[in-house]
Design a protein around this nucleic acid. Structure first.
Length: 820
RNA sequence: GCGUUGGUGGCGAAAUGGCAGACGCACAGGACUUAAAAUCCUGGGGAGUUACAUCCGUGUGGGUUCGAGUCCCACCCGACGCACCA
């Protein structure tokens, strides 16, 4: 026999599991629950990549193990099927996205089943199904119909928003509400991609530029979600979750909280205009020797003197033409021009020049900075390049001439006026003192600033969730009511972009030209659709109650499965460290504010599986033809060999090169395991007998049970597999195979290699699925050996080794050693 | 530049401060075979010796310790992410 018959037993057991609903998850509240979740895939046309199974097999092992440990385990799967690639594919091949999606999903499901992954398919979800996106729209409306109460630190219904007494007309009240909603319209410069015919979120730009598309800035009316209101909670609640530190750090950085002050500089000779700057170092205000505005800053024309206007205009034009890429490439060189205008430093009362430079970003802070070249690296470089004065206001203890910015904390110097003095104060104290002084004199205020920006939530695309808002001819609008959901995506033959910067939906007559049945008024729906992230913001909740047509998820099910900490284990790629995980946390917190979910955070424990690289250790890419197809591997070596190999390659989190030879090695191991129990014909071995184990065999068996169990808990699957290999190697050498040990081994192997385990279990005479068994328990007494080898060292050099009884006392050992 | 990680045989990798390299791949030798494949057994860090002894070995240099791959300090290199955010 070349190999055990995986090609017949794998389909056999997959059918058995399907027929017997082996993996269906009951809502059995009497058992402790365990919710283990994969990041659901985007069903592309190319099918599963060899990297997909890595995370899926890991969670599959955990799920099977936990079930065998007595937990009620939820391990569902679904498809994140809206999105640009499918739409692009559809346009190119002239098939409808619905058709393309169905086809791709079907292929993905075939491949997932082929791998023996034990999902409860009755809980499958697909973000493009109206039964699903009805609730995506419903949650969106929850957000739309909310404002953020800063005092209570939570979202509240928009009709509870206090309306100022000065606002009385219905239109003004509506406008006021619109200005406070968590979903709002804004006309902002966006990343417009002509090739795709849509706008992109800042975060998405790089991905498409890398694929060869060009992206330009263009002001457009867009739907935004006010994620910034949740900045603090998104930051603080990272403390509550067990996530990789790199991911936490990335989110912290993305949120970018910085504490400082806003300071107003009076424009020199113009009491009507002030320039507001944001700084994290208000303590250095005495060292602010000039101001810099972003080129796009609204006050630039105002402060500029006429003789400088043309040069300013030229500079602005140049800056606007620079792509983001060029801006970063040219990061080393600082450019800028003098406006001709001056402002008054509120601390020193000195006249300081106002410059513009593109290293000051219009969209961060106030779009203007006070430059303190003595204590900020960028300002120092700029001041040196343009010959601007550099003043020391913080002592470094030596106080020589500044040859570089001194950015550390220190004691203030040269920081006194008739009104206020910071001299001698530490940086921390100086900040407090100056902010008090600024606030008292009404020229500044302590301020917390975030890097996080509101979430651009609309796309000019067809293949996404429709936004459930309609507009009337008179300029008024309304959001749909719950009983009007889902707002179905119209089935159209032409889904190419309108070419006007509008979504394809703008060309659909029934969409933009109809009578609203509720009001009888002529109306058009919002033509933009939601971004791909929307569906994945809450899918983990829908799995709990996929068929519910009256709620997004029944509350008793939510309470049981999510508990107070959320999904027990969430496994997926690190590429989602910021976007998906931040957006999902945001939506979850809105739901939490309404008491619709019971945990503050959606995902208690997060794990990123590492990349699987090509055999040469570089990134696998289809274009170079290096990619390995899971189908081919399964055909040649079997799904179990693929599963075990992917777990054996190395630590789950590490990037590891693929080795087809390694799969062969694992297949050898499975063959050896088979031969431990069965003949080539699949009959039990005659030497399989009910005999007691020797002490040594007991030790090997229980070491294996312990190691496998412990390693599964810590996701160290590679060493668990090693230990099973050791077990097989040891027992291969035994003439008689003790039946009880073989049975326990097969149960340990089952989470890793479910098909061969079921088959061997049947060969061993069992008639029910091995996954109804309990995972073996470790008998710690079997791990205690009667003798132990000790190493005798003198000055840490090994002098001798000896085998001694394990219960030897210190005295006995000393006596023993001195005799050697 | 900043953040997070890593750096151990020919390769993937193991190793509560206590025999470095478990387990697997590749390789070499042997058994079985007419032969090969498959399988089984055996061997492999380096130098050195007929063999033993011995010495050197976990990116580099220091330190702590009876003892360091593991802890501390500095540096070098790689991967991933961020990158003028005031």
């Amino acid at each position: 026999m070349a190999s055990y018959p995986f090609s017949t037993i794998e389909p056999k057991w997959q059918k058995y599991w399907d027929d017997n609903n082996t993996y269906s998850t009951p809502d059995d509240y009497t058992k402790p629950k365990y919710y283990v979740l994969d990041m659901f895939p985007y069903p592309s046309g190319t099918g599963l990549h060899i990297g997909h199974p890595e995370g899926y097999v890991a969670t599959d092992i955990i799920a099977r193990y936990k079930r065998m440990k007595g937990f009620n385990v939820l391990h569902p799967m679904g498809f994140d099927a809206f999105g640009l690639p499918t739409e692009q594919y559809s346009m190119k091949h002239n098939v409808h996205p619905i058709t393309a999606t169905e086809k791709n999903v079907e292929n993905f499901k075939r491949q997932l089943k082929m791998l023996g992954l034990g999902y409860d398919w009755s809980r499958e979800i697909n973000t493009t199904y109206p039964e699903y996106y009805k609730w995506t729209q419903w949650i969106f409306l929850k957000i739309y119909n909310s404002w953020y109460d800063k005092d209570l630190q939570r979202a509240r219904p928009i009709n509870e928003l206090p309306i100022p007494a000065t606002i009385t007309s219905p239109k003004d009240i509506e406008d006021y509400r619109d200005s406070k909603r968590l979903a709002f319209n804004a006309s902002i410069p966006v990343n417009w991609c002509e090739g795709l015919g849509t706008v992109l979120a800042n975060e998405e730009v790089d991905e498409w530029v890398a694929k060869g598309y060009t992206v330009e800035r263009r002001p457009m009316r867009q739907l935004m979600l006010r994620i910034t209101e949740y900045a603090d909670r998104l930051l603080e609640d990272l403390e509550l979750v067990e996530w990789p530190s790199s991911t936490k750090e990335m989110q912290k950085h993305w949120i970018g909280k910085s504490t400082g002050a806003e300071i107003e500089f009076q424009v020199s000779g113009d009491t009507n205009h002030t320039i507001k700057v944001f700084t994290t170092r208000p303590d250095t205000v005495f060292g602010a020797t000039y101001l810099v505005l972003a080129p796009e800053h609204p006050l630039v024309e105002h402060v500029a003197t006429s003789d400088n206007l043309s040069i300013i205009e030229e500079y602005r034009k140049r800056a606007s033409l620079k792509s983001d890429l060029e801006r970063t490439e040219l990061a080393k060189e600082k450019t800028g021009v003098f406006t001709g205008g001056y402002a008054v430093n509120p601390a020193t009362k000195a006249k300081v020049p106002i410059w513009i430079a593109d290293y000051v970003l219009a969209h961060y802070g106030t779009g203007a900075i006070m430059a303190v070249p003595g204590h900020d690296d960028r300002d120092f470089v700029f001041a040196t390049a343009f010959n601007l004065p550099i003043v020391r206001v913080v002592s470094d203890g030596i106080d020589g001439e500044l040859t570089a910015a001194f950015t550390d904390n220190g004691l203030n110097v040269n920081s006194a006026s008739t009104d206020v003095s910071l001299n001698g104060l530490s940086t921390e104290d100086a900040k407090v003192t100056i902010i008090q002084w600024l606030e008292k004199n009404n020229i500044g205020i302590g301020k917390v600033q975030y890097r996080l920006r509101d979430w651009l939530f609309s796309r000019q695309r067809y293949w996404g969730e429709p936004v459930p808002i309609l507009y009337y001819d008179d300029g008024t609008k309304r959001a749909l009511d719950e009983d009007e959901l889902p707002l179905m995506l119209p089935k159209v033959d032409h889904f190419k972009p309108a070419g006007t910067g509008e979504s394809p939906l703008a060309l659909v007559d029934s969409w933009v030209n109809f009578i609203d049945p509720k009001t009888g008024k002529h109306a058009r729906y919002e033509t933009n659709t939601m971004p791909q992230w929307a569906g994945s913001c809450w899918y983990y909740l829908r799995y709990l109650d996929t068929k519910n047509s009256t709620k997004f998820c029944a509350s008793d099910k939510e309470k049981y499965w999510m508990g107070t900490t959320g999904v027990d284990l969430y496994v997926g790629g690190a590429e989602h460290a910021v976007l998906h995980l931040l957006y999902a946390r945001f939506w979850h917190k809105v739901l939490y504010d309404y008491g619709l979910v019971s945990s503050k955070e959606p995902f208690a424990r997060l794990f990123h599986q590492g990349l699987i690289l090509g055999e040469d250790g570089t990134k696998m890419s289809k274009s170079i033809g290096k990619s390995v197809s899971p189908d081919a591997i399964v055909t040649e070596f079997g799904a179990d060999a693929l599963r075990v190999f992917e777990m054996f390659m190395g630590p789950l989190e590490a990037a590891k090169p693929w080795q087809t030879k390694g799969v062969e090695g694992v297949l050898r191991f499975l063959n050896r395991a088979w031969r431990l129990i069965a003949t080539d014909d699949g009959a039990p071995l005659p030497v399989l007998q009910e005999i007691p184990l020797t002490n040594e065999q007991e030790f090997v068996l229980h070491s294996m049970i312990k190691k496998v169990g412990d390693d599964i808990e810590t996701l160290s699957f590679n060493t668990a597999v090693s230990q099973m290999m050791i077990f097989v190697n040891e027992f291969t050498q035994c003439e008689i195979k003790p039946r009880s040990a073989m049975e326990k081994f097969v149960v340990c192997l089952a989470p890793f290699a479910p098909h061969i385990a079921e088959e061997l279990w049947q060969i061993l005479g069992h008639t029910t699925s091995i996954f109804l068994e309990k995972f073996p328990t470790v008998d710690e007494t079997k791990l205690i050996q009667s003798t132990v080898e000790i190493v005798l060292q003198v000055n840490s050099k090994i002098k001798s080794k000896a085998v001694v009884p394990v219960e030897s006392t210190d005295d006995e050992l000393e006596t023993f050693c001195s005799c050697r």
